[in-house]
């Protein structure tokens, strides 16, 4: 497994290939559809963002509430397709990494190729395991969104798989063909 740290520069992105497994460490952000919508609204208005998108990694997750003594609850990925309407805009603004699960549209893949970004999958339904790799969590904007608020996380060895790389190779399309019967 490849070790990877944030910030995720475009040089690092170019070295990642669909099918690679990586352990990601450093600072990442959480956002789902509602927070993405607000980010795009701010960009449209030319107002400052609560996070710096340059070389940033966004994890699509809505965690469960943190029980006493923990920094965060269960924290696995949500379906990425719901962010597809917004992702190309964020990628154009400097976002280099997305973490989620499930299929992406062609528009997202094109933006990734054009601006050098990567799409990782975390294991869907492994929320307790992924939570154990999160060392710090802090809401940095939009607390009113509850689980969907924008958070800054510090992660250590978050296990991920590269699904779509910046050359446009897609593990979801290519790998199942090897195991298909009939």
């Amino acid at each position: 497994m490849k070790k990877l740290t944030t910030p995720l520069t475009k040089e690092k992105v170019r070295e990642l290939h669909a099918g690679d497994t990586v352990l990601l460490s450093g600072t990442i952000y959480t956002a789902r559809d509602a927070a993405h919508k607000r980010i795009v609204e701010l960009l449209d208005k030319g107002e400052p963002l609560p996070l710096d998108l340059k070389d940033a990694v966004i994890y699509y997750v809505g965690p469960t509430p943190a029980p006493p003594g923990r920094v965060i609850g269960s924290a696995g990925p949500t379906t990425s397709g719901r962010m597809d309407a917004y992702a190309p805009r964020l990628i154009a603004e400097g976002e280099t990494g997305m973490i989620g699960k499930g299929l992406r549209t062609d528009a997202v893949v094109q933006a990734m190729q054009e601006h050098t970004a990567v799409y990782f999958a975390a294991t869907g339904g492994a929320g307790a395991l992924l939570s154990s790799r999160i060392l710090e969590a802090e809401v940095i904007a939009w607390e009113d969104l509850g689980t969907e608020a924008l958070r800054r996380l510090k992660v250590q060895d978050l296990p991920l798989t590269v699904v779509i790389d910046c050359a446009g190779h897609d593990l979801y399309k290519e790998a199942p063909l090897q195991y298909k019967k009939g």
């Binding site: 997750v61 965690p63 469960t64 269960s74 696995g76 869907g124 929320g127 307790a128 154990s132 689980t147």
Partner: peptide
């Protein structure tokens, strides 16, 4: 994940 969830009293999935 299943073992961790049980041991730490965390939801299996968020």
């Amino acid at each position: 994940n299943a073992a961790l969830a049980r041991e730490q009293n965390l939801p299996i999935c968020q």
